[in-house]
């Protein structure tokens, strides 16, 4: 039931016609059960079909609809309009280049994700006939939380270090590397450490913790990064020690 209308201020940008982004205001009905994504869909269908934004699942699984809502990075499908005042400002995710309206360029994140090899690298390849790689519930529990990442890039938008140092590998990529490092079936940690323990890797993190506060899936990337730092520090001292002992 519509009880009132609400103002939505959206940052618009069309690289073909606009020299810079500008704000456009829309008046949308307020429904108690509506999220910001519903309001955007209402605009697209009824007011302005030229509005561009990404979305797919509408249930915080696909990770497509990350955007700045009143200055904070959020999933539009998880942000209820009833939790805001009469004016909601919607912008593309911070720290990423705008492609068009609320659509941002993901190339940097995707290439970083590929660099940390976020997939199982078995210790030893075995033929299919030998059966599956088995895992106990306790072994699953070690990494399960870090496997909940939906690549929505909200942690990159929240991270002030990524804003300052664009070459920083960033929260989600390092957390996913950690997820596979913790997997009992995996043997690829050494390969991932080449990126993760480099100057552009985990050491750019100063433990601000904004990533974990913003993460819509409660992955706690900041916690993962601190564990990676401890493990990398132990590695470093071990390597030094073994080179002295030679």
């Amino acid at each position: 039931m519509t009880d009132r209308s609400i103002e939505l201020e959206v940052l618009r940008y069309n690289p073909e016609t606009d020299s810079e982004p500008y704000w456009q205001r829309y008046s949308v009905p307020h429904h108690h059960e509506w999220v910001v994504l519903d309001a955007l869909n209402h605009i697209k269908e009824n007011i302005d079909p030229t509005l561009n934004y990404r979305w797919s699942c509408h249930m915080a699984v696909c990770g497509s609809c990350g955007m700045m809502i009143n200055g904070s990075p959020k999933l539009a499908c998880k942000s209820f309009m009833r939790d805001y005042e009469n004016l909601i400002r919607v912008e593309p995710l911070a720290h990423f280049p705008i492609e068009r309206d609320l659509v941002t360029g993901m190339d940097d994140f995707v290439s970083k994700l590929a660099r940390v090899k976020p997939y199982l690298i078995p210790k030893q390849d075995k033929p299919v006939e030998e059966g599956e790689y088995r895992q106990t519930p306790a072994e699953l529990k070690r990494y399960k939380q870090y496997s909940m990442c939906i690549n929505c890039m909200i942690c990159y938008s929240a991270c002030p270090e990524y804003g300052l140092i664009p070459k920083f590998l960033g929260p989600a990529a390092i957390t996913l590397a950690h997820r596979y490092n913790l997997d009992s079936r995996d043997g690829g940690r050494e390969q991932r450490q080449e990126e993760v323990a480099s100057g552009e890797g985990v050491w750019e993190c100063t433990f601000v913790g904004a990533c974990s506060e913003a993460c819509p899936k409660h992955v706690d990337p900041a916690g993962a990064l601190q564990q990676v730092k401890i493990a990398s520090t132990i590695d470093w001292f071990k390597e030094q020690l073994s080179s002295w002992l030679k």
């Binding site: 990126e195 323990a197 480099s198 100057g199 050491w203 990398s232 520090t233």
Partner: peptide, 9 residues
């Protein structure tokens, strides 16, 4: 990429 010496600090 070379590993960082940051662990020492």
């Amino acid at each position: 990429m070379a590993k960082s010496n940051k662990p020492i600090v």
